[in-house]
Design a protein around this nucleic acid. Structure first.
Length: 464
RNA sequence: GACCCUUUCAUCUAGUGGCCAAGGAUGCUACGUUUUCAUCGUAGUCACAGAGGUUCAAAUCCUCUAGGGGUCGCCA
């Protein structure tokens, strides 16, 4: 039987980073087995806007390079189907109407809590034969087993046993007739042919409830995998306060999708000592049996490290394309390769890389105060002036970094000075700071005219 | 409160009774490379939650305790 997995988010408007990880696990497992990865929107709560939410999810999937098979299933469009199953259970006596009011329910729960019990429905209408109370629209409850143990083997956690009396006769249809979550999930997962359900372990307690539905309807159980949550750096549940939880936020911050995926796949999953995984490797190596049991904490440092790694290993032409969204258009630059080779190791994100590029390409509008103090002193001015003269009279071509290096070597030889004497002031003249790409590279990138212009400006600054 | 899940360096993790006086990666600290910064390389730093068992042998099995997380809706 071919593997079928799914991602079933409720429409919140954006794709959460934790959601992306469970989606990734499901997607990888489907692709690994040449199976199907389905998408379903859990919108039985009709107030939310599902279309927009779906769009956001698909956008995020597109960005990271994931896709889904078949048509998207909207639960809000399947109410007739669910109704049939509710009627079927009612007819077979596997479900029943309950006339308890919300007030009565609250009172019951309170009393149970006071006695130190786990609050649950007491089953008072389970075998009710009398006349129902007036003026109450009943809910429909399913008959859960009253004794014994509901157990299943979780692919991540192992065997899970829940005492049957922990699972009450939960509501499968509200008093307005609409079906509830645990009921429709079980039906859809069964009807959509799911073989492997991979989801967050906050659903662990829903599983026995869904098993009750599977059993009542005679559906075959899929295999369940409950993946532990991602916590923040403090080990608490990841929330909006912890910064970026929206996947697309990472795109805006200059992360590469490969880096984000690589980061997420290693959160709660591993393959020996391997840290770097291409998408192809993930597909071929992923197996949910290697998923960790315990929760993991989100750590931005490792994500940053991965991002730097992927930036360094991305072809320059592709980087140039990506940088357009960050206000840097260098696709047509005639020194593109040189420019990116000189800068890509200095930016951990595309945002930082864009900054580095701008630093090289644009003449400094001001000089860093500390750098000026350190570099523009002594005979710096004279050396810079000599260097300009040398560049202007140089007879060999000036194209490559090595060409410029030859000029510098000639200068230090003639003046009998150390490299630092010209290196430091030259660097400040070029970019206004003491750090950055090599001066040879920078001069080759901006060309001899721009180089001279920048040095002249520095000389003028020193004079004032 | 009840029930369920979970517990190896600061963080992500390897580890399924002997290969572990616990390995890799990130971070951090040095040093080297670099005219600078970054990259890169080398080294260092740092952990089996605690207590009892079982066993010739336990990070690995059992029990209890403690910490963390989740769930207890006519939300999903």
């Amino acid at each position: 039987m071919s593997t079928v997995t799914r991602f079933a988010p409720s429409p919140t408007g954006y794709l959460h980073i934790g959601g992306l990880r469970t989606a990734l696990f499901s997607w990888l497992w489907a692709r690994h087995n040449d199976g199907k990865f389905l998408l379903r929107i859990e919108d039985t709560d009709r107030a939310r806007n599902s279309e927009e939410a779906l769009e956001a999810i698909i956008k995020a999937f597109d960005w990271v390079g994931m896709n889904y098979d078949g048509d998207v299933v909207y639960q809000s469009k399947r109410f007739d189907l669910y109704k049939q199953y509710i009627d079927q259970l009612l007819a077979k006596g596997k479900a029943y109407k309950c006339y308890m009011s919300k007030g009565e329910l609250d009172a019951l729960r309170e009393a149970q809590m006071a006695r130190g019990e786990r609050p649950r429905y007491d089953g008072r209408y389970r075998d009710f034969e009398g006349t129902p109370p007036e003026g109450i629209d009943p809910v429909i409850r399913i008959k859960a087993p009253k004794e014994g143990v509901i157990s299943f083997v979780d692919g991540v956690k192992g065997e899970i046993n829940i005492a049957a009396d922990e699972v009450d006769d939960f509501i499968i249809a509200r008093s307005d007739g609409t079906p509830t979550y645990n009921f429709v999930v079980a039906i859809d997962d069964a009807l959509m042919g799911l073989t492997d359900v991979i989801r967050g372990d906050d659903h662990l307690y829903n599983t026995p409830k869904q098993i009750v539905v599977y059993n009542a309807l005679g559906f075959k159980l899929p295999k369940f995998y409950h993946v532990a949550m991602i916590n923040n750096e403090q080990g608490k549940k990841l929330s909006k306060r912890d910064g970026a939880t929206d996947v697309m936020e990472y795109k805006r911050m200059g992360y590469l999708p490969e880096a984000l995926l690589n980061f997420l796949v290693r959160l709660g999953w591993s393959h020996g000592d391997q840290e770097i995984f291409s998408l192809e490797e993930m597909v071929s190596l992923f197996d949910p049996k290697d998923i960790n049991k315990s929760a993991s904490s989100y750590s931005p440092d490792k994500l940053l490290w991965l991002n730097a790694h992927y930036i360094k290993n991305t072809p320059n032409a592709k980087l140039a394309e990506l940088l357009k969204e960050f206000g840097v258009d260098i696709a047509e630059h005639d020194r593109l390769e040189m420019l990116l080779d000189a800068t890509k190791e200095r930016g951990k994100t595309l945002v930082e890389l864009a900054e580095q590029i701008n630093l090289v390409l644009n003449a400094p509008s001001e000089y860093d105060a500390k750098a000026v103090k350190k570099a523009f002193k002594g005979e710096a001015k004279e050396i810079l002036v000599d260097f300009i003269a040398m560049l202007q009279t140089w007879e060999k071509p000036l194209h490559l970094p090595s060409d410029y290096h030859a000029v510098l070597e000639a200068l230090v030889a003639e003046k009998e000075i150390g490299f630092g004497k010209i290196g430091m002031p030259l660097r400040v003249a070029l970019v206004g700071a003491l750090t950055g790409p090599g001066v040879d590279e920078m001069m080759a990138i901006i060309g001899v005219d721009e180089t001279i212009e920048r040095i002249e400006k520095a000389v003028a600054t020193i004079e004032n």
